[in-house]
């Protein structure tokens, strides 16, 4: 009768109190949290965009800062989701034992992990929108109406990287462990997936690797929308982001069940 950790998730609206708990904590420090999340990507975008951009004629046919804007939205959303499920999620699961407390109520671990996933996606949506507001203020987008489509893509990006990050959370013995994920997964994606320069500038082998990485697909959706085109192969990119996020969530749930409920 041993529990099967790989049973499909039971999804229910019971996750809402978990989401709400995290929201209430965030709300207490909302303004500094938003500014803190915004500062780093904004400075990269403005510094590199104007500084480095002034040395370049144009990238992919547009001013460098407009090229960089789409990458910044994606990587800022990715970072926000990743930090939330890794560091904050780990605090709640392992350090503060908040999850243990919740598991003694009618909520199940499936509810808790789903709540964390939705919360991290929500928080990363706020980060993505914050950067978009800067972009709109600087008029870096080609078409405002088309750039509004970036918002649902940001939700997908947040979902994708929250799901992936939850796997790391499930297996981590301590905060230090997350450094591997940043060094081996997040940083390579930032450098290979087209945040700062077109993927086509790289050798073929690196392009092939990039084609499998989710951030590439995020950027392939956001950049055209920013520069005033409809993305090509949009459904492929959408499906890749959903697949990474859903697989991550499923694997993370199985590993977390094993970690907390055995």
């Amino acid at each position: 009768m041993s529990r099967n950790y790989l049973t499909l998730p039971t999804l229910s609206l019971r996750f809402i109190p978990v989401w709400r708990r995290n929201y209430l904590v965030w709300k207490k420090l909302a303004i500094p949290a938003i500014l803190g999340n915004l500062a780093d990507p904004m400075l990269y975008m403005l510094g590199l965009g104007y500084g480095l951009g002034s040395l370049m004629p144009s990238v992919a046919g547009v001013p460098y800062i407009a090229f960089l804007a789409a990458g910044t939205v994606c990587y800022s959303t990715m970072n926000s989701a990743t930090f939330e499920v890794l560091y904050s999620g780990f605090s709640r699961m392992h350090v503060q034992k908040t999850w243990d407390a919740i598991l003694n109520t009618p909520l199940t671990l499936d509810d808790v992990v789903l709540g964390e996933l939705v919360w991290a996606s929500t928080k990363s949506l706020l980060s993505g929108i914050a950067i978009l507001v800067i972009i709109w203020a600087l008029q870096l987008q080609a078409s405002f109406w088309l750039s509004l489509w970036i918002i649902p893509v940001v939700v997908l990006i947040g979902f994708c990287f929250s799901g992936m990050g939850l796997v790391m959370n499930a297996v981590s013995p301590s905060y230090d462990f997350f450094l591997y994920y940043f060094t081996l997964v997040i940083t390579p994606m930032v450098l290979l997936c087209g945040v700062f320069f077109p993927v086509s500038q790289m050798p073929a082998i690196l392009q092939n690797i990039a084609a499998f990485l989710p951030l590439t697909h995020a950027i392939n959706l956001v950049r055209p929308l920013m520069l005033g085109h409809i993305p090509t192969q949009a459904w492929l990119h959408v499906m890749v982001l959903i697949a990474y996020g859903a697989a991550g969530f499923y694997i993370a749930l199985g590993l977390t069940r094993k970690r907390l409920l055995s």
């Binding site: 708990r21 209430l24 904590v25 207490k28 503060q96 034992k97 908040t98 243990d100 407390a101 003694n104």
Partner: peptide
């Protein structure tokens, strides 16, 4: 219908 007091306090320190 059940209440649980765990061995280690897990009150929510953020509240």
């Amino acid at each position: 219908r059940v209440g649980v007091v765990p061995q280690l306090d897990n009150l929510d320190p953020d509240f």
